[in-house]
Design a protein around this nucleic acid. Structure first.
Length: 295
DNA sequence: AACGTGTTCAACCGCTTGGTG
DNA sequence: TCACCAAGCGGTTGAACACGT
């Protein structure tokens, strides 16, 4: 029992698109917009499946596509975004106007991978490679080169200019250490990891204007439909609702929450009083209560 | 010129996600 | 709650092209 095919394969063309097919698709979309892809081929008189039409339009025919080589700035932006997001090509493409996820994915695989390797960096983890080509890992550290350990594998929610996206660290970083402990369990890692993490995230954010905010997975319902402005994302003011994280940790009490703990980052030496970030770093993240999970 | 090898990128495939009844 | 469907996503493939011998 497989799922039904997306189209009647016996009556569809495959392979490279002809100029005539391109023109039909362009004409149809100019006239009717990008409505239902499944019904589009028939309506446009194309012997293609909807998926194929969508791909052709998005990756090749769209008028707002930027053609030509990637610039040095685009290169560096892709590398930075990849170090933060992993292989989330559509998210990365969302920060590069005129570029498609497919284009960026191809460019990554053909150019940037090699570029990073030549710099002595692992293209997947962005960590330094040793002479054997293996990633250098000290201890059982965090995903990417951020220097933290993930506890409880909480998916992060990121918002890019109003687009929300859950990042599942365990999926993106299967090698990351995952603990089942919660905030006050007293697990250990290097001191100041949270500070480094937050520092790097903020640095990356500053460098590339990510407008990145991090929410808690258990509150993702509202975030998914959120169209919060970037100013709202960055707003450090008090938030309504039971959870509120301000600059400067205010403790896991009084209905407020340490985002570091809630995110599940394992912090060195944390005890009943909260993680080391809670205690000494003054808090680096701002969060807002974005509602309960839809479930 | 002919051939082999490497590179590029458009397109496909299968899976996941989100919406709806 | 479940099943179904459409759209979207990321990994992979393979034809076309570039380059070296």
């Amino acid at each position: 029992m497989g799922r039904s095919p997306c189209c009647e394969k016996a009556h569809t063309n495959k392979g490279a698109w002809t100029k005539d097919e391109d023109q039909r698709l362009i004409d149809y979309i100019r006239l009717h917009g990008e409505g239902c892809w499944r019904s589009l081929p028939k309506a446009a008189g194309l012997l293609r499946c909807g998926k194929s039409c969508r791909l052709r339009w998005i990756n090749y025919l769209r008028p707002d596509l930027k053609r030509g080589n990637f610039t040095q700035e685009e290169d560096e932006l892709i590398i930075k975004l990849h170090s933060l997001l992993g292989n989330k090509w559509s998210l990365i493409a969302g920060r590069l106007p005129g570029r498609t996820d497919n284009e960026i994915k191809n460019y990554w695989n053909t150019h940037i991978k090699r570029k990073l390797i030549s710099r002595g960096l692992d293209p997947q983890t962005h960590r330094p490679l040793n002479s054997n080509g293996n990633t250098v890992v000290s201890g059982d550290k965090a995903p990417e080169n951020l220097g933290f350990t993930v506890v409880n594998n909480p998916p992060l929610i990121t918002q890019f200019g109003g687009i929300s996206q859950t990042i599942d660290f365990k999926k993106n970083h299967p090698d990351a250490k995952v603990k089942s402990d919660s905030c006050n369990s007293g697990t250990t890692t290097d001191d100041g990891q949270m500070g480094r993490l937050s520092g790097q995230l903020h640095k990356a954010q500053d460098d590339i204007n990510l407008e990145l905010s991090i929410g808690l997975s258990q509150f993702q319902g509202e975030a998914r439909s959120s169209t919060a402005s970037s100013a709202e994302s960055r707003d450090v003011g008090p938030r309504p609702g039971p959870f509120e994280v301000k600059k400067g940790h205010e403790g896991g009490q009084n209905g407020k929450v340490c985002l570091c703990c809630q995110l599940g980052f394992e912090i060195n030496g944390q005890g009943q009083g909260g993680c080391s970030n809670c205690q000494t770093k003054g808090g680096y993240f701002y969060s807002r209560y974005i509602g309960p999970l839809g479930s």
